[in-house]
Amino acid sequence: MRRLLLERAVWLVPTLLLATFGVFWLIHLAPGDPAITLAGENATARQIAAIRHELGLDQPFLLQYWHWLTHAWRGNLGTSLNTREGVAGAIGHALPVTLQLVLGGLLLAAVLGTIAGIVSARRAGTSTDAAVSTLASAGAAIPSFWLGLVLISMFALGTHWFPATGSVALTSNPGQALRHLVLPSIALGVSGAAEIARQLRAVLIDILGSDHIRTLRAKGLSERRIVWLHALKGAAVPLMTIVGLQVSRFLGAAVVVEAVFGISGIGSLVVGAAQNHDYPVVEGVVVVMALIVIVVNFAVDVSYRIFDPRIR
């Protein structure tokens, strides 16, 4: 376990360097100049140049990255070029909103996907299996923004069961927060549920045909115990892998879902920043996202060791 942790920590450095440098470079390549925007409509060339100088934008690209990197290394993510707000603070406000949404989507995807996967694996080859598989294909194919719009028009504007937009922190008002979370979580989670169902079905069909499951039947265990305890534990390692992959996918997809539901999370923060060449904010978000993905991967690796004694 300690070795794994050390290994992951060592990989963290090149991963973060590569991600932050790549994003920095992309922002640099993109057309537009934040100084012009900041200077306002009637600014003179001198005023713009002064702003560029003040922000360090007149320095060579590599030097700019180096400055950012040395500050970030010391824990200083800098301030937003546009709002002058501290990047850490801005992320601190937006991140919980997004994590709440990602967790909601993940929970939905895991529960729905697991149930659908088990149902179709146990009835493999039947019409039930075909129906579930068709639904899963549809779920994987539907774009989340479209699903979000449909959900809003049906269950928010149509029936008023759920609010159409906005979010509430789970810590401030759990009931309201959950009501706000339902529709965006569905919009975000359905494709993940479809993916989990598809993969779990294949894994379970394989496991349910294996020798040790036959032994369990031969010794008189109930089918329920065989499927939900033994087969599902056998499927846990691939299942955790897929769930872990969904986390990083959802962090990306949350951008779109947040836009549809008017949620001001990381997505809206980073989109706005990218449009304005606000590289400190974008870089800060990249660092945080990369850290989250790395932590999730680590957790997945640890879960392998919990579920499969042979990996210990």
């Binding site: 020798d211 040790h212 031969a218 033994h230 534990k233 499969d308 004694p309």
Partner: peptide
């Protein structure tokens, strides 16, 4: 009535 199988490695559940 019980049954035992040929390959005891694969016949036992490896995770329990």
């Amino acid at each position: 009535i019980s049954m035992i199988f040929q390959e005891p490695m694969t016949a036992l559940d490896p995770l329990f």
